[in-house]
Write a protein that binds this DNA or RNA. Structure first.
Lengths: 232, 232, 232, 232
DNA sequence: CATGAATGAGCTTTCATTCAT
DNA sequence: AATGAATGAAAGCTCATTCAT
């Protein structure tokens, strides 16, 4: 009796494990193949080959090719949002906290270049509504919105605590997003592995203080600046 | 004889006009169709239909589908770069000049949303080297580089004239690009027609002075700000 | 020992029961699904779902999809032939006996519309030899032949007893088959539930007396009919 | 001028000819392949091969595989209906006229065995409404109805002119259809080329006078009958 | 040079069948 | 023996490109 009941739960348990195993294998393979060949250039066969399974198996786990992409982006995006959100262990002053978030996010991008490649290819960070042309269609808006909301919350916190300007948070959030995207693209494009801490510091510094000459709080290199001033 | 020689020069002229006429019609149609359906979703047939010509005619002007895209992007990108570059008539103080450039660029984006849609779809502003997956392949780098060079020159001028921080111009240029891209995406995505002047002013202000509370030159509200002012 | 030997015989019996249970469940499900979706439109999965068993179980009872169809048709066809054959209890005069056979057959069709749908779909009553295109291939001839033989025997009896014309029984049998098929198709197609007795009477009357005006036994209208009446 | 206008009409004319040429080649090939392999067993590739054209060309003329079938059946059915309908040159007495119609129809079947094979395979003469399972879906009803209407008109004429019983024409038409179908199936199945005239005469005779012994108006073969009577 | 039908490689998806549990 | 996921061959359909007119 315990035997039979054990079977009833043991078998499904094994099956579920196996199922998850296959599903993840497919997603990993897809991430790699999509990044290398782009969504359109990737054939289901390629993904299956990479995952060392049969084509049909892919279709046992996902209804269509697009769904593989959606599932992939969903999982990773959730992780990325987790990186961007403030953690309880982050230091309190807002600029420090923001720096931590940015460091984590750039780390995530650095560690998931394939995902980023794919996300860019699909316009995950760019197209949203105008998505008749997007592979992601309606889902793109959803995904994009999630990310935007996270940035928005972060910026709002900054405004509330007085660390950011008292102004419409929408452009502030858009700007922060633009900077992070710029850094991410730089990393993925140039295939460089920069000092992430430094990159994040620079980004946050520029975001908070601007690129203008007046903004340089630390070590003003007087002579150079003066010379330049004269020259101008 | 003079007749025949006249023909020899007159005819080619007409032909060239006609040729250009077709070529432009194709590019215009392609811009629209690519924007609506994406590069992969657009069939040559669709483009031909839109240009009210035959499919074969497209192939009389372009070797392959990709070439239509390249030609399209090349033309528009040249225009866009023209917008981003300082004009002789732009006012001198760097911040004013920068503002003019940004206004022109945003205007260009606003007037060429279809192009922007396409450019985003193809990763023109995003993928560059990592372009096995890109439709643009090698050309993407070329295109991207041109744009980057323009931004770079602008930023360098800013540094030289002392309006921008004395620092590595690469991240500065990347940042400026990120901000402009963020604004552009916002416009295309939300299909809004914002006050471009205001948007540009905001962008330049944020770029030069940052989003930090200290950066607010106008309306100081309390001591903290004053303290910060002192510190700077 | 007697225990064990009892087992040896008792167990197989249960097993056989269970086996038959599954087999019949599969055939019933198949009948329904084939009728609704056609042989090609029916997936093994659909049949299994309908029988509330697993796909694999179907393959424990039948080698391949076609075999399910064959088994189904075989069983039902045997029943149908049983309906068409004269029963010992049928009344003697040939026309009465024929009427009984036809009534039974139409009843069978009425009660097994799904089977009929399937049989028609597979060309059971129609294609026979020319069966490269048939799903039933060689078996079709076999099946068709059985049915034809039964009709043939019936017609032969009619000829022998003098109720039917003294002529080549082959076209006579073919004709009877054609009439029954016509009625059957009418029933299945129009999804009507006609008065089977009346339908059978009409069929037999037309078969025996023809559709010609002279053939009307009731309400004689003029001499011609009377003459014929006399002749009979 | 006349040249250019000639071109405008000459080119399309040629094209239309070519178009019809291809279309017919496809339909002929399809008829053959469908008959040999059945609709489901026939691949578009097979049809294209048989027509010595490319797969894509089939799709330039028909939207889907099914449409090829529909077009094929439509054309042939129209012809078949033409055969079944009375011609102006047919002799007047109804039985003679009917015989002419049946002869023509059997001739048509004889000459278009492939079509008949296909029609049977698709349930053109059998399934109609119950067509969830049919390849023809809704169109089947339409086709079937056309044929039925023709038979119906023929029977109605017979009733009106007094050659057929004064009764509900529906079963009369159904019966006539059943007989013709039976003969057709016999021909296609047995691949025999019978004397069509004789077959038609037999069919009409049986239809009008029935199979009953009393129905034999001509040449009673007395001895045989008596012998058989004795034997029974 | 415009035209538009022909071409056929290529890809997604389906589903009968197998097999490990 | 039941189960249901894995398998992979097979087929319909698309569409970039070619080419005869």
């Amino acid at each position: 009796m315990s035997n039979s009941s054990a079977r009833r739960t043991a078998l499904p348990r094994r099956r579920d494990e196996a199922k998850a195993l296959f599903r993840n294998a497919i997603l990993d393979a897809a991430e790699h193949v999509f990044a290398k060949q782009g969504f359109h250039g990737a054939r289901i066969q390629d993904i299956a080959d990479h995952a060392r399974i049969a084509v049909g198996t892919v279709y046992n786990h996902f209804e269509q090719k697009e769904d593989v992409l959606h599932a992939l982006l969903e999982v990773r995006l959730e992780q990325m949002i987790g990186s961007l959100q403030p953690h309880p262990t982050d230091p309190e002053p807002f600029d420090q906290k923001l720096r931590c978030c940015v460091v984590r996010t750039l780390q995530f991008v650095d560690e998931h270049r394939d995902f980023h490649q794919v996300a860019l290819d699909c316009g995950l960070f760019a197209k949203g509504t105008a998505s008749a042309s997007s592979i992601l269609k309606e889902k793109a808006v959803e995904h994009f919105e999630k990310l935007r909301a996270t940035t928005f919350a972060l910026v709002n916190e900054g405004i509330t605590c007085g660390a950011l300007r008292q102004m419409d948070p929408v452009p502030l959030a858009r700007m922060l997003g633009g900077l992070i995207r710029a850094s991410s693209i730089g990393m993925v494009m140039e295939q460089s592995h920069p000092n992430l801490e430094a990159e994040a510091s620079l980004l946050v510094d520029l975001y908070l203080n601007g690129a203008g000459r007046a903004a340089q709080p630390e070590r003003p290199r007087d002579e150079t600046i003066l010379e330049n001033d004269d020259a101008s």
